[in-house]
Computed example of a mutant assay.
Amino acid sequence: MEITTERLVIRRFRGEDAAAFAAYRSEPEVARYQGWDAPYPIEQARAAVEAFANGDPARPGWFQYAVDLRGELIGDIGIRLHDNLMQADLGFTLAPAYQGKGYAAEAVAALLDHLFTTQRLHRVSAECDARNAASARLLKRLGFQQEGLRPAYTWAKGEWTDDLLFGLLAEYR
């Protein structure tokens, strides 16, 4: 499955994506609010990309999509499909050079359209570190409603962090 937008292709990962994947995930500002640490080793990237390439987006669990700009990997979007196949959790990461240019919004909006229209999901949820203002703004811009705040909920990188919870129902998008 590929989704094409005006500027991007949302596609499966390929083996040749590993170096670019490791590069942007090794950026401290990219890793800051994520579950991995920088630097992101190339061996780990190769294993992750291979797993992503062999995943099945129609099965419960995480599936990672590559965000491609004119043949260059610039980020990824993860979807965790629930066991009921009617709802999913969303996460996204973009290389620093491509942030603030509308690429994340374009990619996530296209994938949401696919999830709600083709896969007929009822709901997509997302959460982010409360300090990650850019991600929170993006989610709100795409129609997500902030549904909650969990104070000091996640232990990450040596500190307790607050989590913002977001949701988007098919009928409200």
Rank of each mutant, 00 (worst) to 15 (best):
L69D: 01
L69W: 05
R70C: 11
R70M: 12
R70I: 04
G71T: 04
E72A: 12
E72I: 03
E72M: 12
L73V: 13
L73M: 13
L73Y: 01
L73G: 09
I74T: 04
G75V: 09
G75C: 10
D76W: 04
I77R: 00
I77Y: 04
I77Q: 02
I79C: 10
R80G: 02
R80C: 14
L81T: 03
L81D: 06
H82Q: 15
D83W: 12
D83C: 12
D83S: 14
L85Q: 08
L85E: 10
M86V: 13
M86P: 00
Q87N: 12
Q87A: 13
Q87R: 15
A88R: 02
A88S: 09
A88L: 07
D89C: 06
D89M: 12
D89S: 14
D89L: 12
L90A: 11
L90K: 13
L90V: 09
G91A: 14
G91H: 04
F92N: 03
F92G: 03
T93L: 11
L94V: 10
L94R: 03
A95W: 01
P96T: 13
A97I: 02
A97C: 06
A97L: 05
Y98H: 13
G100H: 03
K101S: 12
K101G: 06
K101Y: 08
K101N: 11
K101E: 12
K101A: 13
G102P: 09
G102R: 04
G102L: 09
A104D: 02
A104M: 07
A105W: 05
A105P: 00
A105D: 01
E106M: 11
E106T: 04
V108M: 02
V108C: 06
